[in-house]
Measured scan of single mutants.
Amino acid sequence: MQIFVKTLTGKTITLEVEPSDTIENVKAKIQDKEGIPPDQQRLIFAGKQLEDGRTLSDYNIQKESTLHLVLR
């Protein structure tokens, strides 16, 4: 499924993921596309910060959901 990741600069990254993918996994995909190390990434969905060990389905993230990427 496709999800979108919006950065603070207003750029939107499109990722191909599975509901069973972990947040860690998603961060690795963002690193592949954008070169941002996962340890600098914070992903936010519905106002919650997403934890590395959880999966997209844990957070009920469905196709075409938009996550927000904050760098630390």
Rank of each mutant, 00 (worst) to 15 (best):
G10C: 03
E18S: 13
S20W: 13
G35S: 13
P37F: 12
L15D: 00
L43H: 01
D32W: 12
L71P: 05
L56A: 03
L69C: 02
I30Q: 00
Q41I: 10
E34P: 02
V5E: 00
G10A: 10
L50S: 01
I36S: 12
E16S: 10
K27Y: 09
E64S: 11
K11E: 11
A46M: 14
P38W: 15
D32M: 04
I13N: 02
T7W: 15
K27H: 03
G53L: 06
G47M: 08
T66M: 14
P19M: 07
E34Y: 14
D32F: 06
Q62E: 08
I61P: 01
Q41P: 01
T22C: 02
L8K: 15
D21Y: 10
S65G: 10
V70M: 07
T66P: 03
L50T: 05
K63Q: 13
Y59D: 02
R54N: 07
V17I: 04
P19Q: 06
Y59L: 08
V70R: 04
P37H: 06
I61C: 02
D52M: 13
L69E: 01
E24T: 14
L8A: 15
G10K: 11
I61R: 00
S57W: 11
T9S: 07
I3H: 00
E64V: 12
K29W: 11
R42A: 09
K33I: 10
Q2A: 14
R42H: 15
S57E: 15
R54L: 11
G10F: 06
F45C: 02
L50G: 01
S57V: 13
Q41W: 04
Y59G: 01
R72H: 14
L15G: 00
A46C: 02
I23F: 03
K63N: 06
D58E: 13
T12A: 07
K63W: 10
S57H: 10
R42S: 15
D21N: 10
T66S: 06
K11N: 06
E18P: 05
I3W: 00
I61A: 02
K27V: 03
E16Q: 07
Q49E: 10
Q2R: 04
E34H: 07
T14I: 15
V5L: 10
L71Q: 15
S20T: 13
K33M: 13
K11H: 04
T9I: 08
I36V: 15
Y59N: 03
R54F: 09
G53K: 12
S20F: 13
S57G: 10
T7G: 08
K63A: 05
V70K: 10
D52R: 07
M1K: 03
G53Y: 14
E51I: 07
E64T: 12
K11R: 07
D52S: 08
A46G: 09
G53W: 11
T66A: 04
I36Y: 10
S20K: 06
Q41V: 14
S20Q: 08
Q40D: 10
K33E: 14
V26M: 05
T9L: 06
E24S: 08
K27C: 02
I36Q: 05
I23Q: 03
L71E: 08
T14Q: 09
K29L: 05
E24R: 12
Q41G: 06
A46H: 06
L43S: 00
E16R: 15
E34D: 06
A46N: 05
A46Y: 08
L71C: 03
F45H: 04
F4T: 03
D21L: 06
T55S: 14
K6Y: 11
T22Y: 05
R72Q: 15
R42Q: 11
T22H: 07
L56M: 07
K29R: 10
N25Q: 06
T7V: 13
D58M: 08
G35R: 14
H68Y: 04
L43V: 03
F4P: 01
H68P: 01
Q49S: 08
Q2W: 11
D58R: 03
V17H: 08
G10T: 09
L69W: 02
F4E: 07
T9D: 15
L50I: 13
A28G: 05
Q62D: 13
F45A: 04
K29N: 09
D52F: 08
T7Y: 08
F45I: 11
T22E: 13
G47L: 15
E64K: 07
S65R: 03
I30A: 02
N25D: 13
L69P: 00
L67H: 01
H68T: 15
N60A: 09
D58C: 02
L43F: 15
K48V: 10
V70C: 03
I30L: 11
Q41L: 06
K33N: 04
E24P: 07
K63H: 09
I23P: 04
D32R: 11
R54V: 11
G10W: 14
T12L: 11
T22D: 09
E16K: 12
K11L: 14
R42F: 12
K27P: 00
V5D: 00
I3K: 00
P19C: 02
L56F: 03
F4H: 08
I30C: 02
N60Y: 12
M1P: 02
E24D: 06
S57D: 14
T12G: 08
L69M: 07
L15K: 00
L67V: 09
K27A: 02
T7S: 11
V17R: 00
V70I: 08
H68A: 13
E24M: 05
P19W: 06
F45R: 03
A46K: 09
Q31T: 06
E64G: 09
D52Y: 07
V5P: 00
L50A: 02
V26Q: 00
I30R: 00
D21F: 15
E18K: 09
E16Y: 08
S20M: 15
H68V: 08
R54Q: 04
L56C: 02
P19L: 09
Q49K: 07
K33G: 07
I13H: 10
E51Q: 15
A28D: 07
T14R: 12
I23C: 02
I36A: 09
K11T: 07
K29V: 03
I61W: 01
V70A: 04
Q31L: 05
I44C: 03
P37I: 12
Q40F: 06
K33T: 13
K27Q: 03
K48T: 12
P38N: 06
G47N: 12
D39N: 09
